[in-house]
Every structure is written in structure tokens, then in C-alpha cells.
């Protein structure tokens, strides 16, 4: 069970949060199909750390971005 650093509430237990997936940056809404395809679908899984979104659902309801190591689960600032 991760201890996730919420920017408002500090470190809280994983069960308070909802995962928001890879921290993808949306293209503009009117950008092309292939722009959206690349951003929404294609993943670079070759790195050990990723940027991801979390949502503090049972807390302040903040959406935030963190960097996490997928092997150690450590958060990096």
C-alpha cells in the first residue's frame, strides 16, 4: 500500500486515492486524429520511472502529477 504525496494533504495511504493513469498532456481538442492517437494510446514503457496522475478521492479531491519508480514504487520529487 503506497503512501502517496498529496500536494494539499501530505502523505496519505493509497486507499484514499484513485489512479489517473500516465500523465499525458492532451493535444488541443481540434488536433488531428493521429496526434490524439499517439498521446492517448502509445506508451513509452522503456523507462523505470514514469509521470502519472493521482486523484485524492477520499480527501481534498485534488488531481496531481507525481513521478514514481515502477520497480521500487518510490516517489521522486
Amino acid at each position: 500500500m503506497l503512501l502517496i504525496p498529496c500536494p494539499n494533504c501530505g502523505e496519505r495511504d493509497e486507499i484514499e486515492f484513485d489512479y489517473g493513469g500516465r500523465a499525458i498532456q492532451y493535444p488541443a481538442l481540434n488536433n488531428s486524429m493521429s496526434d490524439w492517437h499517439m498521446v492517448l494510446h502509445q506508451r513509452d514503457n522503456s523507462t523505470e520511472t514514469i509521470e502519472e496522475f493521482w486523484y485524492h478521492q477520499s480527501g481534498c479531491e485534488c488531481w496531481f502529477k507525481v513521478t514514481r519508480n515502477l520497480n521500487t514504487h518510490e516517489f521522486e520529487s
Partner: peptide, 11 residues
């Protein structure tokens, strides 16, 4: 207008 999903809906 453009909206969420408008782009990939064109697939």
C-alpha cells in the same frame, strides 16, 4: 466545435 472525443471519433 471541437470537444472531448471529437478527434478520435473520426477514426
Amino acid at each position: 466545435k471541437a470537444f472531448i472525443g471529437s478527434s478520435l471519433l473520426q477514426r
